[in-house]
Design a protein around this nucleic acid. Structure first.
Ligand SMILES: [Zn+2]
Length: 280
DNA sequence: TCATTTTGACCCACC
DNA sequence: AGGTGGGTCAAAATG
């Protein structure tokens, strides 16, 4: 059996792994039933937050390969880059090395002893990376993060170009907890609501259950990127992703149509500007 | 020691 | 029916 014997994993894979997704059940390794049972991400809402961030940690070591990207792969990223958005990004990246690259050995100081690795990205939540993949022809690196909270199974996907530029950020699900604790000096302006809690608002479900995609850099008028419509709560979220945010909620039905792309696109236009993140 | 990151492999969905 | 892409897990490595 397993002539390879490379690792137990192999063996397991043959037997247990199969169940992992299928009926689910067994997988002793995962204490958390996780959502995998239903499907992979069916039930999770996918919130796409797109923002081109210029990674502070990544100086300009690499030549801008951005130009090499045609539009085929990611139509979204072609818009920014120039600076337009960079400004916004200034959010407290300071402690978010995870955004890219292997540690910021830039040589700066090792400040932030408390925050060990990172995790606290713009969200203020703690994330643990559980996977990384090259997508789009290896042009982009997608990192998969999971919320470290016990009951929280929110996932985040960070897509970056080789430059270290973040082309897409996708959030799946909502946190059950407000936030860990931002001890950061914060000057941004959070302070508002730690009560960000988002109970599954039924009203929102209308859109939240459906597949709804929001492209930050949409075609121009997208409506107010800074949309003041967003009251309270999302402030923090909005503020950080104000320039571009893509919200994507995926459901089983999502695949029912052939051109979901178009559908979604239109849909997003309808709701454009509304990040469902805020229940209220 | 623990938590987290890294990396390879496996599986599933879609084309 | 097969192939590819994408997503997740698990073991090992690192701080
Ligand atoms: Zn969480």
């Amino acid at each position: 059996m397993v002539s390879l014997g490379k690792c137990a994993q192999d063996e397991v894979a043959s037997e247990e792994l199969q169940q992992r997704h299928g009926s689910g059940g067994g997988v002793a390794s995962q204490p958390i039933p996780d959502v995998g049972l239903l499907s992979q991400e069916n039930r999770d809402n996918e919130i796409h937050a797109k923002r081109t961030e210029q990674e502070a940690t990544t100086p300009s070591l690499f030549p801008e390969k951005a130009s090499q990207l045609p539009d085929a792969a990611v139509p979204t990223m072609q818009s920014d880059q120039e600076g337009s958005t960079s400004s916004i990004i200034l959010e407290k990246d300071s402690l978010a090395p995870d955004t890219g690259i292997p540690m910021l050995q830039s040589g700066q100081e090792g400040s932030t002893p408390s925050i060990i690795r990172e995790k606290v990205t713009e969200d203020g939540y703690n994330w643990r990376k559980y996977g990384q993949k090259l997508v789009k022809g290896n042009e982009f690196i997608r990192s998969y993060y999971k919320c470290t909270h016990p009951n929280c199974q929110v996932k985040k996907q960070l897509e970056k170009s080789h430059d270290g530029q973040i082309t897409d950020t996708t959030y799946l699900g909502q946190h059950d907890h407000p936030k860990p604790q931002l001890n950061v000096p914060v000057a941004v302006g959070f302070a508002l609501s730690v009560i960000d809690e988002r109970p599954n608002e039924p009203s929102l479900t209308g859109m939240d259950d459906k597949s709804f995609v929001e492209h930050g850099q949409t075609p121009n008028q997208t409506e107010p990127v800074d949309d003041p419509t967003r009251p309270t709560v999302a402030v923090s979220d909005n503020v950080k992703g104000a320039l571009s945010q893509t919200n994507r909620m995926r459901d089983v039905v999502d695949k029912d149509d052939d051109d979901d792309t178009d559908s979604k696109r239109q849909f997003k236009q309808l709701v454009a500007g509304g990040v469902c993140s805020c229940p209220r």
